[in-house]
C-alpha cells in the first residue's frame, strides 16, 4: 500500500467524524480495511459487521429513524445485494451515505468481479442513488464530505464510488506464485 493510500483512509475517517457519522455498517473489503479498523477503534463510532450488505441498509435506515447518521462501507459486488433494500430509504426519503470500492473495472484479474462491478453504477442509478465517482486518492475525503452533505441535508441516497485506480491492481496469481 502506498503512502497516499494510507492518507486517504485517515482523512476519510476524520471527514466521517466531522460530519457527525456515528453508525458504521460494513461487509469487509480490502480497500476499506484501514478505515474499518479506525472506525472499530473509535468509541464514538458504532461499527457493525454485516453478513450481507442489505442488513446494513436496513440498520442504517433504523438508525436514522432513531436520530443517528451512518455510513455503509461496501464493495461493488455487494451493491448487488442491496437493490431491493434501497426501496426503503428511497420511499421513506431516508438519507443514505455509502462508500463503495470498485472492482471489475480497472485491470481486474478476476472475471467473477466484472459483471457486478460494471453493473454497479447503472444498478444504483436505477434505484435513485446519486453517484459521486472518484479516480484519485486525494479526492476521496472531499467526495465523502460532499456525499454526506448531499445525503443528510439533501435527503438523498448517495454513493461515493472509489475507482479501482485508487485501490490499485489486485492479482492473487502473483501471490500464489
Amino acid at each position: 500500500m502506498t503512502e497516499t493510500a494510507l492518507d486517504w483512509h485517515a482523512e476519510v475517517f476524520a471527514t466521517l467524524q466531522a460530519e457527525g457519522i456515528t453508525q458504521v455498517c460494513h461487509v469487509p473489503d480490502a480497500g476499506h480495511s484501514r478505515l474499518i479498523k479506525m472506525c472499530e477503534e473509535d468509541n464514538a463510532m458504532s461499527t457493525v459487521t454485516c453478513t450481507t450488505e442489505q442488513e446494513g441498509i436496513y440498520a442504517l435506515a433504523g438508525a436514522y429513524l432513531g436520530g443517528a447518521k451512518g455510513v455503509m462501507l461496501l464493495q461493488s459486488s455487494g451493491v448487488g445485494n442491496i437493490i431491493n433494500a434501497l426501496a426503503m430509504p428511497n420511499t421513506c426519503r431516508i438519507p443514505l451515505l455509502m462508500v463503495a470500492t470498485m472492482r471489475g473495472e480497472w485491470g481486474e484479474f478476476n472475471s467473477w468481479q466484472v459483471p457486478m462491478g460494471q453493473g454497479t453504477p447503472g444498478s444504483l442509478e436505477a434505484m435513485g442513488v446519486r453517484l459521486i465517482r472518484v479516480d484519485n486518492p486525494e479526492e476521496v475525503p472531499m467526495a465523502v464530505k460532499a456525499a454526506a452533505r448531499l445525503a443528510f441535508d439533501g435527503e438523498q441516497m448517495v454513493a461515493v464510488l472509489i475507482s479501482q485506480k485508487v485501490i490499485g491492481f489486485k492479482d492473487f496469481r502473483e501471490l500464489a506464485k
Binding site: 453508525q23 458504532s46 457493525v48 442489505q54 442488513e55 446494513g56 436496513y58 440498520a59 442504517l60 435506515a61 433504523g62 438508525a63 436514522y64 429513524l65 432513531g66 436520530g67 443517528a68 451512518g70 426503503m88
Partner: peptide
Amino acid sequence: MIGYGLARAQ
C-alpha cells in the same frame, strides 16, 4: 435489522 439499527441509535 431496522429494529436493530434503531436500538443502537436509541
